[in-house]
Amino acid sequence: MTRAGAVAAAVLAALAGLLAPATASAVEARAETRARIDAPATRQADTVVGSGTPASCTSRAVVRAVARGGVIAFDCGPQPVTIAMKKTAKVVNTSAKVVLDGGGLVTLSGQGQRRILYMNTCDRAQVWTTSHCNDQAEPRLVVRRMRFVDGDATGETTDGGGGGAIFVRGGRLRIVDSQFAGNRCDPTGPDLGGGAVRVLDQHRDRPVVVRRSSFTGGRCSNGSALSSIGVSWRVVSSTFTDNRAVGRGANPARPGTPGGGSGGAIYLDGDAIHLTVEDSTISGNHAREGGGAIFFVSNDRTGTLTVRGSTLTDNPSEGFETIPGVFFLGASRTITDSVVR
């Protein structure tokens, strides 16, 4: 072997020695990550609702677990289970985090009678922790691998109502791998909304994140899937179908009307707000007034709407829209690699 060949062989051998452990470590790291993802939620839980049977998973147990806080998992048996909520589960504001992980098997039902989940950092009844309640960092509420059905916030008046499945003010909210179906809030009102989810205020104006989730069959005056005031959102790989804004008269309400009817699926109002919709489908929603799919109003005209890699189709607006299915008033609207019609 020539001297040059010997040097090359030595370099290759050294590289092989360096790369082999790194490659093995990377494989082990990926395996460990996958194991954590696939592991039963109960292994990482602070509280487990149920003891292995559907009957052991009760509304009372859910309410107590949410009030206690931490990571909450469910052990209701191997088959899907629906828990009929007899009371609204409420987050206590001294909790640093509240994570509900249903493992893809748990449905919480409001039975068409009540809101399902509530967090409000400005509600003294849930413990007042700071005078800056609108902008506190905690609690951090996460729902993942859950299903919320038949929640109803009709008649709720605290902070304007809304949020048939989930109502949040303050802290942080994140929704992952979850489904919402048949949720309701009041059918009239110019700025009331959130058949499924209503949000007011988030810590440091950070966006609510929604990933790989679905919203179907919501009914409310406005925003029958998602609704907020002064809040930004990032919606990724999610679907919205058959949500209807059933109010009448828009906002501000026309004379002789109760107001509402905008944002069949999504209703956002505020100032410096931003909405990103990515790799998502919004189809078959409806508004009696504006924005069959999305209603977006930035009052100070600084807000932005970004739609990437998404499909927005068949979302009629009976009253008004900027482009098919969307009413937008803000600084800029960017739509790329998407179908809007």
Rank of each mutant, 00 (worst) to 15 (best):
V210Q: 03
R211P: 01
S213M: 14
S214H: 02
F215S: 06
F215W: 01
F215M: 09
F215H: 02
T216Y: 11
T216L: 13
T216Q: 13
C220S: 15
C220I: 01
S221W: 00
G223R: 03
A225Y: 05
A225M: 12
L226M: 04
L226H: 07
S227T: 03
S227E: 11
I229M: 03
G230C: 02
G230V: 03
V231L: 08
W233N: 06
V235W: 09
V236T: 13
S237P: 00
S238A: 15
S238Y: 06
T239N: 11
F240G: 03
F240Y: 10
F240M: 05
T241P: 00
T241Q: 14
T241H: 14
N243W: 03
R244H: 13
R244M: 04
R244K: 09
A245V: 03
V246G: 05
V246I: 15
V246Y: 02
G247I: 09
G249F: 00
N251Q: 13
P252S: 08
P252L: 10
P252G: 12
R254A: 15
R254V: 03
P255T: 00
P255K: 01
G256I: 00
G256P: 00
T257S: 14
T257M: 06
P258Y: 04
G260M: 08
G261Q: 11
S262Y: 07
G263A: 10
G263K: 04
I266M: 14
I266D: 13
I266G: 15
Y267E: 02
Y267S: 11
L268R: 02
D269W: 06
D269Y: 14
G270Q: 10
G270N: 09
G270R: 06
D271Q: 10
D271V: 07
A272Q: 11
A272T: 12
A272W: 00
I273T: 13
I273N: 03
E278C: 01
E278H: 02
D279L: 06
S280Y: 04
S280G: 08
T281K: 12
T281Y: 01
T281Q: 15
I282Q: 09
I282P: 06
S283I: 04
G284N: 08
G284T: 07
N285P: 04
N285V: 11
H286E: 10
A287M: 06
R288N: 15
R288K: 14
E289P: 05
E289G: 13
G290L: 11
G290S: 15
G291L: 11
G291K: 10
G292R: 00
G292M: 04
I294P: 01
I294A: 10
I294G: 07
F295G: 01
F296N: 08
S298I: 09
S298E: 05
N299W: 05
D300T: 14
T302W: 01
T302E: 13
T302L: 07
T302V: 08
T306I: 13
T306E: 12
V307F: 00
R308M: 09
R308Q: 13
S310L: 02
T311P: 00
L312K: 00
L312D: 03
L312E: 03
D314C: 03
D314T: 14
S317R: 04
S317W: 07
E318R: 14
E318H: 03
T322Q: 06
I323T: 15
I323P: 02
P324L: 11
P324F: 08
P324N: 11
P324A: 14
G325F: 05
G325T: 12
F328H: 09
F328C: 09
F328Y: 11
